[in-house]
Design a binder for these strands. Structure first.
Lengths: 236, 236
DNA sequence: CGATGAATTGACATGACTCAACAACTGTGG
DNA sequence: CCACAGTTGTTGAGTCATGTCAATTCATCG
């Protein structure tokens, strides 16, 4: 994990790491804040770069920071009583993770990097204070909370209900890049843990989709989707 | 649906319907508010009594009110693209439903009464204003949001993952009354829609549990659970 | 009492899991 | 550069769990 500290100065100046003119500003957690807000922060914002497999935090870790993804992909995992891991959400660019620590002491998930990820780290206290003093920030935070909830419902209805083929089709369309038919997959084990199926079933389903033309492998784990066909499969 | 209006007077006076001394006050949405807060409300709080089968709202209905359950049981339903209904959460006493309208225009679920339910109805504008002006209220609202999210995760991991028997065992323990082994069930169709299994599988699983002594039918849809045994089943 | 819908049960088909063999890919050391 | 081991993905055969369809019982209510 590589970290880069953002000093108060840099955070709102024209420096390299610059929250005020951040490229994902409109969707970043600290968008809408003023110079003064940043001046009040005791602990700096930091930027992290993480590689696949690295663990951001685990269930029960004391939570002192929230994070916003600038790029990449992170899985949130919970474990069943019998030890089976279950991926409960995927977080992508502009998503915020660790919201729970605003009202709890510990993280509720294990956060593991799936694809090289850049993120910004905010101290809990600062976020909490902004939330209480800045109405725009506060509204934005509620939006993020609601989005998380809404995502959780979709996860349940689309990825955890019905036969494996429909679930897989839903996952593929969900992982599809905007304005394109491209889709990047990851390990069969992770796919299984998302759809609650075995790696064999995941592999077989993908093979069948390839055979029937619903997807074409461009290169390793990179596919072109037949969006029409997959949509029809879901709705049938 | 029976409604009883709470006038400004009643809301904070010693009247019959009295938010300030409400019996579930510590867990009700408007706990922590002062006389002055109630004076600011343009539209009154109302109490509703609803019977099984009645629909509180549907997906896409314009959302103008939030609700807190005083008693009873309500299911939140979403529909799959192919029309299958899926129960995504069960709401019980002291739970708040309709949070989404604080940041969205419409309800995201269909809310249907499963057991005779009493609830309080709050106008969206008032809740929104309290949220911005009253720090305690605001903190409470965040707690509710986080609880909903946490519940959604549990729903996914416990009730939608693994074999039907384990899911059923989890559901039974979740429906169990506090400090007792009693458990009230509802229609097999609803159980199926919670666990994402067919009504036949639901029925068969319950029959098997009765045969193997994991539960005993006291009267219609009222059971005594073998908590130990069910827990063992889940963890195996 | 009969009529209706819900729940149960049985017989069978099918989808998903298990176990096992093998293939493809990755990284390491010679 | 190759040989090798370790890991991940694929495929096949057999089993088991769940879904499907149908028949029957049960509960409720007029």
């Amino acid at each position: 994990m590589v970290t880069k500290q953002v000093t108060l100065d840099q955070a709102w100046s024209g420096g390299n790491i610059d929250c005020l003119s951040c490229s994902i500003r409109s969707s970043a957690l600290l968008s809408g804040l003023t110079e003064q807000d940043f001046e009040q922060m005791h602990e700096p914002v930091e930027q992290l770069d993480m590689q696949p497999g690295e663990v951001l935090y685990k269930v029960g870790d004391p939570g002192r920071h929230l994070f916003t993804l600038r790029s990449g992909l992170i899985k949130l995992v919970q474990y069943l009583p019998d030890g089976t891991p279950r991926i409960v959400r995927l977080m992508r660019s502009s998503d915020t993770i660790g919201l729970e620590i605003l009202v709890a002491e510990q993280y509720e998930h294990e956060a593991v990097v799936l694809r090289a990820t850049g993120l910004c780290r905010y101290p809990k206290e600062a976020v909490s204070r902004f939330n209480q003093t800045n109405p725009v920030f506060h509204k934005d935070l509620m939006l993020r909370w609601q989005k998380a909830l809404s995502d959780a419902d979709t996860w349940l209805t689309q990825l955890s209900t019905g036969p494996a083929k429909k679930r897989m089709a839903n996952l593929l369309l969900r992982l599809k890049e905007e304005n394109s038919t491209d889709c990047f997959l990851f390990s069969r084990e992770d796919i299984g843990s998302i759809l609650s199926i075995t790696i064999e079933t995941a592999s077989r389903t993908i093979s069948e989709f390839k055979r029937t033309g619903l997807m074409k492998e461009i290169r390793h784990n990179h596919y072109a989707l037949d969006v029409e066909g997959l949509t029809r499969l879901i709705e049938s």
